[in-house]
Design a protein around this nucleic acid. Structure first.
Length: 320
RNA sequence: CGCGGGGUGGAGCAGUCUGGCAGCUCGCGUGGCUCAUAACCACGAGGUCCCGGGUUCAAAUCCCGGCCCCGCAA
Protein backbone atom coordinates (compact mmCIF):
# COMPACT_ATOMS: atom_id res chain seq x y z
CA UNK A 1 0.00 0.00 0.00
CA UNK A 2 1.35 3.47 -0.84
CA UNK A 3 2.49 5.36 2.23
CA UNK A 4 1.20 8.63 0.89
CA UNK A 5 -2.41 8.92 -0.22
CA UNK A 6 -1.40 11.25 -3.00
CA UNK A 7 0.63 8.45 -4.55
CA UNK A 8 -2.35 6.14 -4.81
CA UNK A 9 -3.35 5.85 -8.45
CA UNK A 10 -7.03 6.56 -8.48
CA UNK A 11 -9.55 6.22 -11.28
CA UNK A 12 -12.87 8.02 -10.97
CA UNK A 13 -16.04 6.96 -12.75
CA UNK A 14 -19.16 9.09 -12.68
CA UNK A 15 -21.59 11.02 -14.82
CA UNK A 16 -24.17 13.15 -13.02
CA UNK A 17 -23.89 16.39 -11.08
CA UNK A 18 -23.86 14.24 -7.94
CA UNK A 19 -20.79 12.47 -9.29
CA UNK A 20 -19.26 15.81 -10.22
CA UNK A 21 -19.51 17.02 -6.64
CA UNK A 22 -17.70 13.89 -5.47
CA UNK A 23 -14.99 14.33 -8.09
CA UNK A 24 -14.46 17.93 -7.03
CA UNK A 25 -13.94 16.93 -3.44
CA UNK A 26 -11.35 14.36 -4.50
CA UNK A 27 -9.58 17.05 -6.48
CA UNK A 28 -9.67 19.35 -3.48
CA UNK A 29 -7.85 16.65 -1.54
CA UNK A 30 -5.17 16.60 -4.23
CA UNK A 31 -5.62 12.91 -4.87
CA UNK A 32 -3.72 11.44 -7.77
CA UNK A 33 -6.50 10.89 -10.28
CA UNK A 34 -5.01 9.09 -13.26
CA UNK A 35 -8.20 8.76 -15.24
CA UNK A 36 -11.85 9.86 -15.33
CA UNK A 37 -14.53 7.68 -16.88
CA UNK A 38 -17.87 9.16 -17.80
CA UNK A 39 -20.74 8.42 -20.16
CA UNK A 40 -20.25 9.33 -23.82
CA UNK A 41 -21.46 12.80 -24.80
CA UNK A 42 -25.09 12.88 -25.79
CA UNK A 43 -26.93 14.99 -28.30
CA UNK A 44 -29.42 17.12 -26.49
CA UNK A 45 -32.10 19.73 -27.05
CA UNK A 46 -33.99 20.93 -30.12
CA UNK A 47 -30.86 21.55 -32.13
CA UNK A 48 -29.34 18.24 -31.12
CA UNK A 49 -26.21 19.94 -29.86
CA UNK A 50 -23.62 17.81 -28.15
CA UNK A 51 -23.50 18.47 -24.46
CA UNK A 52 -20.71 17.46 -22.12
CA UNK A 53 -21.79 16.28 -18.74
CA UNK A 54 -20.68 17.96 -15.52
CA UNK A 55 -17.99 15.41 -14.78
CA UNK A 56 -16.38 15.84 -18.17
CA UNK A 57 -16.32 19.61 -17.82
CA UNK A 58 -14.59 19.34 -14.46
CA UNK A 59 -12.14 16.77 -15.77
CA UNK A 60 -11.26 18.93 -18.76
CA UNK A 61 -10.72 21.95 -16.56
CA UNK A 62 -8.21 19.99 -14.51
CA UNK A 63 -6.56 18.42 -17.55
CA UNK A 64 -7.38 14.91 -16.43
CA UNK A 65 -7.36 12.01 -18.86
CA UNK A 66 -10.95 11.34 -19.92
CA UNK A 67 -12.37 8.03 -21.13
CA UNK A 68 -15.90 7.62 -22.48
CA UNK A 69 -16.27 4.03 -23.64
CA UNK A 70 -19.69 2.86 -24.83
CA UNK A 71 -18.93 -0.44 -23.18
CA UNK A 72 -16.04 -2.24 -21.59
CA UNK A 73 -14.89 -4.41 -24.44
CA UNK A 74 -11.38 -5.82 -24.65
CA UNK A 75 -9.89 -2.55 -25.91
CA UNK A 76 -11.52 -0.42 -23.22
CA UNK A 77 -10.54 -2.89 -20.54
CA UNK A 78 -6.93 -2.85 -21.68
CA UNK A 79 -6.84 0.93 -21.59
CA UNK A 80 -8.04 0.83 -18.03
CA UNK A 81 -5.44 -1.76 -17.11
CA UNK A 82 -2.74 0.47 -18.57
CA UNK A 83 -3.72 3.19 -16.12
CA UNK A 84 -2.63 0.79 -13.37
CA UNK A 85 -5.26 1.99 -10.92
CA UNK A 86 -4.76 1.19 -7.25
CA UNK A 87 -8.37 2.09 -6.51
CA UNK A 88 -11.47 2.85 -8.55
CA UNK A 89 -14.13 5.17 -7.20
CA UNK A 90 -17.54 5.16 -8.85
CA UNK A 91 -20.48 7.44 -8.25
CA UNK A 92 -23.59 7.56 -10.42
CA UNK A 93 -21.62 6.37 -13.42
CA UNK A 94 -24.55 4.73 -15.16
CA UNK A 95 -22.70 1.69 -16.44
CA UNK A 96 -22.33 -1.72 -14.89
CA UNK A 97 -18.70 -2.76 -14.55
CA UNK A 98 -17.93 -6.29 -15.65
CA UNK A 99 -16.33 -8.55 -13.09
CA UNK A 100 -13.03 -8.39 -14.94
CA UNK A 101 -12.86 -4.64 -14.33
CA UNK A 102 -13.66 -5.02 -10.65
CA UNK A 103 -10.58 -7.21 -10.25
CA UNK A 104 -8.11 -4.78 -11.76
CA UNK A 105 -7.32 -2.41 -8.85
CA UNK A 106 -5.49 -3.98 -5.95
CA UNK A 107 -7.53 -1.94 -3.47
CA UNK A 108 -10.72 -2.80 -5.30
CA UNK A 109 -13.61 -0.63 -6.44
CA UNK A 110 -15.52 1.68 -4.11
CA UNK A 111 -18.99 2.89 -4.97
CA UNK A 112 -20.79 5.87 -3.51
CA UNK A 113 -24.50 5.17 -3.26
CA UNK A 114 -26.95 7.77 -1.98
CA UNK A 115 -29.11 5.59 0.22
CA UNK A 116 -28.90 3.61 3.42
CA UNK A 117 -28.10 0.29 1.81
CA UNK A 118 -29.55 -2.29 1.61
CA UNK A 119 -32.49 0.10 1.16
CA UNK A 120 -32.98 1.55 -2.30
CA UNK A 121 -30.54 -0.45 -4.31
CA UNK A 122 -30.59 0.65 -7.92
CA UNK A 123 -30.29 3.72 -10.10
CA UNK A 124 -32.61 6.22 -8.39
CA UNK A 125 -32.16 6.06 -4.62
CA UNK A 126 -32.69 9.75 -3.93
CA UNK A 127 -35.83 10.00 -6.03
CA UNK A 128 -37.33 6.94 -4.44
CA UNK A 129 -36.59 7.95 -0.87
CA UNK A 130 -38.51 11.18 -1.48
CA UNK A 131 -41.28 9.39 -3.37
CA UNK A 132 -41.80 7.07 -0.46
CA UNK A 133 -42.07 10.00 1.91
CA UNK A 134 -39.05 8.89 3.92
CA UNK A 135 -38.04 11.07 6.84
CA UNK A 136 -34.40 10.13 6.54
CA UNK A 137 -31.99 8.68 4.06
CA UNK A 138 -28.22 8.67 3.78
CA UNK A 139 -25.19 7.64 1.87
CA UNK A 140 -23.18 4.46 1.73
CA UNK A 141 -19.60 3.77 0.65
CA UNK A 142 -19.31 0.17 -0.40
CA UNK A 143 -17.13 -2.31 -2.22
CA UNK A 144 -18.45 -3.27 -5.60
CA UNK A 145 -19.29 -6.83 -6.47
CA UNK A 146 -21.02 -8.30 -9.46
CA UNK A 147 -24.50 -7.48 -8.16
CA UNK A 148 -26.12 -4.07 -8.30
CA UNK A 149 -25.37 -2.21 -5.07
CA UNK A 150 -25.01 -5.50 -3.22
CA UNK A 151 -21.36 -5.23 -2.14
CA UNK A 152 -19.98 -5.06 1.37
CA UNK A 153 -20.43 -1.79 3.24
CA UNK A 154 -17.45 0.24 4.37
CA UNK A 155 -19.22 3.22 5.84
CA UNK A 156 -22.61 4.83 6.05
CA UNK A 157 -24.10 8.08 7.26
CA UNK A 158 -27.69 9.27 7.78
CA UNK A 159 -29.33 12.55 6.93
CA UNK A 160 -32.82 13.89 7.57
CA UNK A 161 -35.22 14.59 4.70
CA UNK A 162 -37.24 17.74 5.35
CA UNK A 163 -40.88 17.58 4.35
CA UNK A 164 -40.35 20.27 1.73
CA UNK A 165 -36.95 19.19 0.42
CA UNK A 166 -36.84 19.17 -3.35
CA UNK A 167 -34.66 16.65 -5.14
CA UNK A 168 -31.85 19.04 -6.13
CA UNK A 169 -31.50 20.32 -2.58
CA UNK A 170 -31.44 16.87 -1.04
CA UNK A 171 -29.04 15.65 -3.69
CA UNK A 172 -26.76 18.55 -2.85
CA UNK A 173 -26.84 17.69 0.83
CA UNK A 174 -26.14 14.05 0.05
CA UNK A 175 -23.28 15.00 -2.24
CA UNK A 176 -21.65 17.03 0.55
CA UNK A 177 -22.23 14.26 3.03
CA UNK A 178 -20.93 11.63 0.62
CA UNK A 179 -17.83 13.61 -0.24
CA UNK A 180 -16.80 14.00 3.36
CA UNK A 181 -17.57 10.38 4.12
CA UNK A 182 -15.70 9.18 1.06
CA UNK A 183 -12.54 11.07 1.96
CA UNK A 184 -12.52 9.50 5.41
CA UNK A 185 -13.42 6.10 4.07
CA UNK A 186 -10.65 6.03 1.48
CA UNK A 187 -8.15 6.85 4.19
CA UNK A 188 -9.53 4.20 6.52
CA UNK A 189 -9.82 1.61 3.80
CA UNK A 190 -6.29 2.01 2.49
CA UNK A 191 -4.85 1.97 6.00
CA UNK A 192 -6.81 -1.15 6.86
CA UNK A 193 -8.79 0.42 9.69
CA UNK A 194 -12.11 -0.18 8.01
CA UNK A 195 -13.45 -3.69 7.64
CA UNK A 196 -16.19 -4.47 5.13
CA UNK A 197 -19.54 -5.57 6.46
CA UNK A 198 -22.00 -7.70 4.55
CA UNK A 199 -25.39 -6.28 3.64
CA UNK A 200 -28.48 -7.88 5.07
CA UNK A 201 -30.12 -8.98 1.84
CA UNK A 202 -33.40 -9.71 3.59
CA UNK A 203 -33.77 -5.98 4.23
CA UNK A 204 -33.07 -4.99 0.64
CA UNK A 205 -35.40 -2.83 -1.44
CA UNK A 206 -34.91 -1.88 -5.06
CA UNK A 207 -35.62 1.09 -7.27
CA UNK A 208 -35.98 1.48 -11.02
CA UNK A 209 -34.68 4.01 -13.46
CA UNK A 210 -36.97 7.04 -13.57
CA UNK A 211 -38.77 7.42 -16.88
CA UNK A 212 -40.22 10.57 -18.35
CA UNK A 213 -43.68 9.07 -18.22
CA UNK A 214 -43.35 8.75 -14.45
CA UNK A 215 -43.95 12.50 -14.28
CA UNK A 216 -47.55 12.11 -15.46
CA UNK A 217 -49.75 12.98 -12.50
CA UNK A 218 -52.52 10.61 -11.53
CA UNK A 219 -55.21 12.67 -9.87
CA UNK A 220 -56.60 9.51 -8.34
CA UNK A 221 -53.53 9.52 -6.11
CA UNK A 222 -53.55 11.32 -2.80
CA UNK A 223 -52.37 14.91 -2.67
CA UNK A 224 -49.51 14.00 -0.37
CA UNK A 225 -48.08 11.41 -2.71
CA UNK A 226 -48.46 13.78 -5.65
CA UNK A 227 -46.56 16.35 -3.65
CA UNK A 228 -43.85 13.80 -2.90
CA UNK A 229 -43.63 13.05 -6.58
CA UNK A 230 -43.29 16.75 -7.29
CA UNK A 231 -40.42 17.00 -4.82
CA UNK A 232 -38.72 13.89 -6.19
CA UNK A 233 -39.08 14.84 -9.86
CA UNK A 234 -38.50 18.57 -9.48
CA UNK A 235 -35.35 18.61 -11.55
CA UNK A 236 -36.25 15.74 -13.88
CA UNK A 237 -38.59 14.60 -15.36
CA UNK A 238 -40.88 17.16 -13.77
CA UNK A 239 -44.62 16.82 -13.31
CA UNK A 240 -47.19 17.12 -16.04
CA UNK A 241 -50.84 16.60 -16.76
CA UNK A 242 -53.01 17.08 -19.82
CA UNK A 243 -55.57 19.81 -20.41
CA UNK A 244 -58.11 19.38 -23.15
CA UNK A 245 -58.63 22.61 -25.02
CA UNK A 246 -60.34 23.05 -28.37
CA UNK A 247 -60.26 19.33 -28.97
CA UNK A 248 -56.58 18.78 -28.39
CA UNK A 249 -54.83 17.51 -25.31
CA UNK A 250 -52.17 19.99 -24.33
CA UNK A 251 -49.35 19.04 -22.03
CA UNK A 252 -49.34 21.19 -18.93
CA UNK A 253 -46.24 21.13 -16.80
CA UNK A 254 -46.84 21.75 -13.13
CA UNK A 255 -43.61 23.61 -12.54
CA UNK A 256 -44.43 24.71 -9.02
CA UNK A 257 -47.03 23.32 -6.67
CA UNK A 258 -47.80 24.30 -3.13
CA UNK A 259 -48.60 22.71 0.15
CA UNK A 260 -51.52 20.38 0.48
CA UNK A 261 -54.85 21.50 1.81
CA UNK A 262 -56.75 18.74 3.46
CA UNK A 263 -60.31 19.90 3.26
CA UNK A 264 -62.63 16.93 3.20
CA UNK A 265 -65.54 19.18 2.25
CA UNK A 266 -64.09 19.78 -1.17
CA UNK A 267 -65.70 17.18 -3.43
CA UNK A 268 -64.92 18.07 -7.00
CA UNK A 269 -64.15 15.62 -9.77
CA UNK A 270 -60.67 14.12 -9.72
CA UNK A 271 -58.38 16.50 -11.56
CA UNK A 272 -60.86 19.37 -11.52
CA UNK A 273 -59.48 22.89 -11.21
CA UNK A 274 -61.20 25.14 -8.71
CA UNK A 275 -60.47 28.27 -6.73
CA UNK A 276 -59.99 28.18 -2.99
CA UNK A 277 -60.03 31.74 -1.67
CA UNK A 278 -57.12 33.30 -3.56
CA UNK A 279 -55.49 30.02 -4.55
CA UNK A 280 -56.04 27.54 -7.34
CA UNK A 281 -56.38 23.90 -6.46
CA UNK A 282 -56.75 20.53 -8.13
CA UNK A 283 -58.92 17.84 -6.62
CA UNK A 284 -57.24 14.55 -5.76
CA UNK A 285 -58.62 11.44 -4.13
CA UNK A 286 -57.50 12.80 -0.77
CA UNK A 287 -56.73 16.49 -0.34
CA UNK A 288 -55.99 19.24 -2.78
CA UNK A 289 -52.89 20.19 -4.71
CA UNK A 290 -52.29 23.92 -4.97
CA UNK A 291 -50.99 25.12 -8.34
CA UNK A 292 -48.55 28.00 -8.16
CA UNK A 293 -46.80 27.97 -11.52
CA UNK A 294 -47.61 26.07 -14.71
CA UNK A 295 -46.32 25.82 -18.25
CA UNK A 296 -48.49 25.01 -21.21
CA UNK A 297 -46.74 23.35 -24.12
CA UNK A 298 -45.31 25.93 -26.46
CA UNK A 299 -45.47 28.58 -23.76
CA UNK A 300 -43.29 29.91 -21.02
CA UNK A 301 -43.73 29.13 -17.37
CA UNK A 302 -46.46 31.25 -15.87
CA UNK A 303 -47.62 32.23 -12.44
CA UNK A 304 -51.05 30.65 -12.04
CA UNK A 305 -52.79 34.05 -11.78
CA UNK A 306 -51.35 35.25 -15.07
CA UNK A 307 -52.21 31.91 -16.61
CA UNK A 308 -55.85 32.23 -15.62
CA UNK A 309 -55.97 35.81 -16.87
CA UNK A 310 -55.12 34.46 -20.29
CA UNK A 311 -57.12 31.23 -20.05
CA UNK A 312 -60.15 32.00 -17.87
CA UNK A 313 -61.80 28.70 -18.87
CA UNK A 314 -59.01 26.84 -17.08
CA UNK A 315 -60.95 27.06 -13.83
CA UNK A 316 -63.59 24.38 -13.86
CA UNK A 317 -61.83 22.21 -16.40
CA UNK A 318 -60.52 18.76 -15.61
CA UNK A 319 -56.91 17.70 -15.96
CA UNK A 320 -56.19 14.19 -17.14
C1' C B 1 -33.30 20.75 -43.07
C1' G B 2 -36.53 15.44 -36.95
C1' C B 3 -42.17 16.98 -35.41
C1' G B 4 -45.08 20.96 -33.45
C1' G B 5 -46.90 25.70 -30.80
C1' G B 6 -45.83 30.86 -30.31
C1' G B 7 -44.00 36.60 -30.63
C1' U B 8 -50.32 41.92 -30.18
C1' G B 9 -49.98 48.54 -24.30
C1' G B 10 -46.39 46.60 -17.98
C1' A B 11 -48.30 40.65 -17.45
C1' G B 12 -51.23 36.77 -19.73
C1' C B 13 -54.37 36.07 -23.88
C1' A B 14 -58.27 36.90 -28.20
C1' G B 15 -58.32 38.80 -33.04
C1' U B 16 -55.12 36.09 -38.37
C1' C B 17 -58.57 31.00 -41.62
C1' U B 18 -62.67 34.96 -44.41
C1' G B 19 -57.72 41.96 -45.11
C1' G B 20 -61.72 47.10 -43.22
C1' C B 21 -62.32 51.41 -35.88
C1' A B 22 -56.65 47.77 -31.39
C1' G B 23 -60.18 43.91 -28.00
C1' C B 24 -60.47 40.66 -23.17
C1' U B 25 -58.80 39.33 -18.07
C1' C B 26 -55.33 41.66 -14.92
C1' G B 27 -51.78 45.32 -13.43
C1' C B 28 -50.87 50.70 -13.12
C1' G B 29 -52.84 56.06 -12.16
C1' U B 30 -56.88 59.42 -10.42
C1' G B 31 -61.45 59.99 -7.91
C1' G B 32 -65.56 57.64 -5.23
C1' C B 33 -67.70 53.98 -1.79
C1' U B 34 -66.57 50.93 2.61
C1' C B 35 -65.17 49.65 9.77
C1' A B 36 -62.57 46.81 6.25
C1' U B 37 -60.47 44.26 1.34
C1' A B 38 -56.23 40.48 -3.77
C1' A B 39 -63.82 43.80 -2.66
C1' C B 40 -67.01 47.24 -5.54
C1' C B 41 -68.16 51.80 -8.83
C1' A B 42 -66.44 55.72 -12.24
C1' C B 43 -62.74 57.86 -15.12
C1' G B 44 -57.78 57.58 -17.25
C1' A B 45 -52.70 56.71 -19.07
C1' G B 46 -50.13 53.26 -21.78
C1' G B 47 -49.32 49.88 -28.53
C1' U B 48 -43.10 50.68 -34.01
C1' C B 49 -49.20 44.30 -33.46
C1' C B 50 -40.79 40.74 -33.34
C1' C B 51 -37.70 42.72 -37.76
C1' G B 52 -37.15 43.58 -43.24
C1' G B 53 -39.31 43.40 -48.00
C1' G B 54 -43.74 42.40 -51.21
C1' U B 55 -49.24 42.40 -52.70
C1' U B 56 -53.43 45.91 -51.93
C1' C B 57 -57.46 51.66 -51.98
C1' A B 58 -56.46 49.29 -47.23
C1' A B 59 -52.17 44.41 -43.71
C1' A B 60 -51.76 42.37 -36.71
C1' U B 61 -54.33 39.54 -40.70
C1' C B 62 -52.18 37.45 -47.29
C1' C B 63 -46.92 36.25 -49.79
C1' C B 64 -41.30 35.97 -49.34
C1' G B 65 -36.96 36.33 -46.14
C1' G B 66 -34.82 36.79 -41.20
C1' C B 67 -34.45 36.91 -35.67
C1' C B 68 -36.16 35.16 -30.98
C1' C B 69 -39.08 32.00 -27.19
C1' C B 70 -41.22 27.28 -26.01
C1' G B 71 -43.41 21.84 -26.02
C1' C B 72 -42.17 16.94 -28.11
C1' A B 73 -38.51 13.67 -29.77
C1' A B 74 -33.34 12.09 -28.99
Amino acid sequence: MPKNLTETRLVFMGTTSFADAILNSLLDEKYNIVGVYTQPDKRVGRRQEIRKNAVKITAEKDNLDIFQPEKFDAAATNKLKNLKPDLIITAAYGKILPKEILEIPKHKCLNVHASLLPKYRGPSPIHNAILAGEKETGTTIMLMDSGIDTGDILSQKKIAIQSDDLHPLLQGKLADLSSALLINTIRGWLSGEIKPEKQDDSEATYCQMIKKEDGHVLWSDEAQSIYNKYRAFYHWPGMFSFWERNGSNLRLKLSKIGAIKNNPQSRHHLGEIFEISDKVGVQTSEGVVILEEVQLEGKNKLDIRNFINGYPDFVGSILK
